[in-house]
Write a protein that binds this DNA or RNA. Structure first.
Lengths: 137, 137
DNA sequence: CTGCATCCCGTAGCCACTACGGGATCAAGC
DNA sequence: GCTTGATCCCGTAGTGGCTACGGGATGCAG
């Protein structure tokens, strides 16, 4: 298991970052991860730079940023021109999307739970859930 | 605009239900909407049964139910065996999915807003958003 | 040097649509 | 009756963000 200076295999990198192996190849295909060095036999060999970058990507994905946003964020994170304002704009836009979805889901949660509550208890002949779906909203 | 007994065109049906025309054809292709009658020239001709069914589907989609759930709900809504218990099971399962997503989004909202707040004001040289993405979570 | 885990690559599938494009049909006006 | 412009036909491909598959090559421990 000691790989020493040779770099990590794609499986090791994926495990280290907690992502699927195929996802790493996918990120490389779409240009989100740079192509790594190769062994004589053609296997990918990653170094710590890749580990850090993949961790960044995974964190951003976990926060719900889209691939194109992440592409931009990675560019803005490049040493030299850390444009905090641009980063904040992207994050703010994403936050407002999150809030929109949040409000939407909260509305769904409300309607669903109310309707299901009517279902369990009242001895009505009709189904409240189906009635709601039949009726205009 | 008076179509009388001839039935609605796909465009009229789609407009009435507030869905895209292509979506209606998609629903027919996947067997969610039954194939309607056709005019001599091959155009689809819908009657009120279709209007009602499409409205049902749209309401269910608006509540976030998936296509397969809706397929089952439509079967359970068929006259004769309105199984309220099964309907409630499907709705409850969906509700708990909604609640899971809700909790997830709330977590994202919290992290994002906190981090962005740090950004606007403090005169630190580094970008809090990028720092968070770089650091382990 | 053998055997087995890992990796290679390209392609297709997932969900719920949406878009496109070239040709046919419909309905209204003249 | 004929023209015109809107609508509709169908099949196919694209979206986002992966995930799965399959047949062959490579890497490494014993």
């Amino acid at each position: 298991m000691v790989t020493g200076l040779r770099g990590l295999s794609i499986g090791q990198l994926a495990a280290a970052a907690g992502v699927n192996l195929e996802t790493v190849r996918y990120y490389e295909r779409i240009g989100l991860m740079p192509p790594p060095a190769r062994t004589g036999g053609g296997h990918r060999s990653y170094d710590p730079v890749h580990v850090q970058r993949l961790a960044f990507i995974r964190h951003a994905r976990a926060l719900g940023f889209g691939i194109e946003d992440i592409r931009t964020l990675l560019a803005l994170a490049a040493p030299g021109h850390r444009s905090c304002a641009e980063v904040r704009d992207i994050a703010s836009a994403h936050l407002s999307e999150v809030r929109t979805k949040l409000a939407h889901l909260a509305r769904l949660e409300h309607i669903l739970s109310e309707t299901i509550d009517q279902c369990s208890g009242a001895p009505t002949p009709a189904c409240p859930v189906l009635d709601m779906l039949d009726a205009p909203m």
